[in-house]
Every structure is written in structure tokens, then in C-alpha cells.
Nucleic acid binder design. Structure first.
Lengths: 187, 187
DNA sequence: TAAAAATACTCCATAGGTATTTTAT
DNA sequence: ATAAAATACCTATGGAGTATTTTTA
């Protein structure tokens, strides 16, 4: 059973006429007749009493009429729910990143836009060290950095893991070392 | 938007796969793909995120999924309501009538059966004068008589009005009368 | 590379239209 | 006799199938 048949039936019931209903839903009278017959056949119930002077609903017809209105209401409710959602899902998402990290961001933006095509994504070029404070200030919604921000007002998630190779001349002070820590490089 | 599309979407969402959903609803995978695309196009909302490893619903998808279940429940409720009604509308209707009144009954039986094809109508041939007491006893549901039963345990409704012509020889005692009352005939 | 989904195309079922008949008042 | 609904028949839209390509992990 489909919503369209119920809407046809609902129109016939309210208009109390097949031909007026047909006019209202922009169909011909035979199309309406057949739609009602199909619905009656599907539900295995006569819905309309065509015998009397004015068109009347059978007991089953009254039940179906009642439910067809409830189906309509539900459809309307759904549209409202979707409309409300749209107001919150269309807008701008500002992401902070710098030249090196934005490379790893691209793939995620592609995925995000598939999900929310209505949201405009803005990538703001920003000094890595400034990104945490900009997030806290609300200037950015998301930021990409290559260190742990260590701030419990922020939530961090690893999106990419990279390997850094340290290349140096054999004459250099660290030239014969197997591995070097980041802090040693800072010295 | 039709219930079928919602059911297809619901199946895809629960199965988390287009092909498994197709199998379940006895359709091919492309048919399911297109049905979802039509629904998305109609609602102007992406419903399913196909990018990730596992199939996920978008925000709109979650809303539609929720409503599709409510639509299902409503359809089920309607079927239950109709089933309950059927229990009360199938049975036997016993009508009492005699030879002369049953003539006028036929048309009403035809109409009644159009309304309630499941009810068996039995016409019991009965002496007119016995019908009121049989109705009171519950042996009959309805009776057709040609006089007012004058009993407040019974409800009477005129279903036909007839004219009786009195035909008599001109030699007869009442031969020259313009009109004759029923009581005079009884004398 | 393998799976799952999307696309291309073809076909056919069925909803809807036109013309007409039947029914009811 | 008239108005409304049902029926007959035909057409065409669009949903579903098969075959294939594209995508993504």
C-alpha cells in the first residue's frame, strides 16, 4: 500500500465525488476510479458505498480515511524535521591549518563535503602555534596541528601518522648516530 | 514520497549494505541503488554516507530512518484496526419477511451486500404477525412488516410506501363509493 | 585486487489517458 | 434524461533487470 493511493482515497472521501476528486488531484475520473479499486482490492475491503445518492464510506473506509490523515500528518512532520535539520547543517566550517598539515587535510575535506554538501568549508592558513588559542576563542571550528595541544578545553584526534627522516653530512657532530631525539635537534 | 522507497531505505540502513538489502527485499542491487538515489533526489538530501568503510547514515538519513519506522508502525496499526473491524463485520444477518414484503426487501439486501459482502444475509419466511416477537426474542435481526409494530422494544422505519387499490363489482354494496377505509373492509 | 556501488541500456508492467458503456436518480 | 462512475482499450512513463564500469579499502 502506497501513500499516493491513500491520498487519492482521502480526496474522494472529502470531496464525496470521484470526478471532483479527479479534478482536484489533476487526474481523470477513470484514473481515480481505478486507483480506489486497486486500493480496495489490495486491502480486501470495500471502502466506498457507491449505491446511495451521496457517496458514503464503509466501516473499513472510515478506518482507512482516519489513517490516511495520520499518514499525511506523519509525512508533514518528517518534512518539518528535515527542514529544521537543514537550518543547522548549512553554514560554514572554518578549519585552521598551515602549509604542511593542509596536505593531510584535503582527503578529510573531500569526505566531509560528501556528507554535508551544503556546508561551506573554509581552510584558514594559520601559524600552528596559534591554532589552539583560535579554537578556544571560537575563531576556528577545527584545527590541524602536528603536536598534542595539551589543553583540556580542546579535544585532539590523530588523523595521520608520518615518519620524519633526519638527513645530515657524515662530518656533522651527529653524523655517526643511529637515532636522534627531537630535543637534541633543538640544542 | 512513497512507503516503498522508505522500506527500501530502511532495509539498506539496517543491513548496512545495498547488495544485502537487495537480497532481502528480492530486488537487484542496482534497483536498490536507484531507489535510494530517487529518494535522496526527491527529499533533496543525501541520506547515506557511502565514503567510509561501513555504510553510515547522514543526519537527514537518521531522521528519515526514524520516520520510516513510524510509517511502518502506522501501517501495521491500520491493518490491525481493519482486522478488528472484520471480526465484527462478518457474520450472519437474519431478516424475517413474508412473501409479499420480501419483494420490497430485495433492493435493500442488494445494497447491504455491497457494503458488507462478508455478511451472509438469510431471509426467513415468517408469518407477519410473528415477526415482532421473533425480533424481541433475538431469532431475527431485522423484520419486514406492513404495519406499525407499536412496541417500544422495537424500532420501525418506513422502507417503502405503496398504494392499494380496491377493486369491486358495481353491484357490490360498496360499488358506488369513492373511497373505503381499511376497517370498513373488515366488517 | 576484490568487493561493493554506480552507470548504461533495455524491457515490460502498470498507471493514466480517451472513448464508451453502465448505472442510478 | 442526465450526471456520475465503471469499463475497455491503448499508450507511455518509469521502475527493474542484465551487463558493465567505477570506486575504495
Amino acid at each position: 500500500m502506497e501513500l499516493y493511493s491513500l491520498r487519492v482515497f482521502q480526496t474522494v472521501a472529502t470531496e464525496k465525488s470521484f470526478s471532483r476528486a479527479a479534478e482536484k488531484i489533476l487526474r481523470t475520473q477513470p484514473a481515480v476510479s481505478l486507483a480506489i479499486q486497486r486500493l480496495e482490492h489490495e486491502l480486501k475491503e470495500k471502502l466506498i458505498d457507491r449505491s446511495g445518492k451521496e457517496l458514503l464510506l464503509t466501516d473499513a473506509g472510515k478506518i482507512v480515511f482516519d489513517f490516511s490523515r495520520r499518514f499525511d500528518h506523519l509525512a508533514m512532520e518528517m518534512n518539518i524535521a528535515l527542514a529544521e535539520m537543514r537550518d543547522n547543517s548549512s553554514g560554514v566550517l572554518v578549519v585552521g591549518a598551515n602549509e604542511s598539515t593542509s596536505l593531510y587535510l584535503l582527503h578529510h575535506i573531500v569526505n566531509y563535503r560528501r556528507l554535508y554538501p551544503k556546508v561551506k568549508v573554509k581552510v584558514r592558513r594559520s601559524l600552528s602555534s596559534n591554532i589552539p588559542s583560535q579554537l578556544i576563542d571560537g575563531e576556528l571550528e577545527l584545527g590541524v596541528i602536528s603536536f598534542d595541544p595539551q589543553d583540556d578545553r580542546l579535544q585532539a584526534e590523530v588523523i595521520f601518522t608520518d615518519h620524519l627522516a633526519f638527513v645530515v653530512s657524515p662530518e656533522h657532530r651527529l653524523g655517526d648516530r643511529e637515532s636522534v631525539s627531537i630535543t637534541e635537534l633543538g640544542e
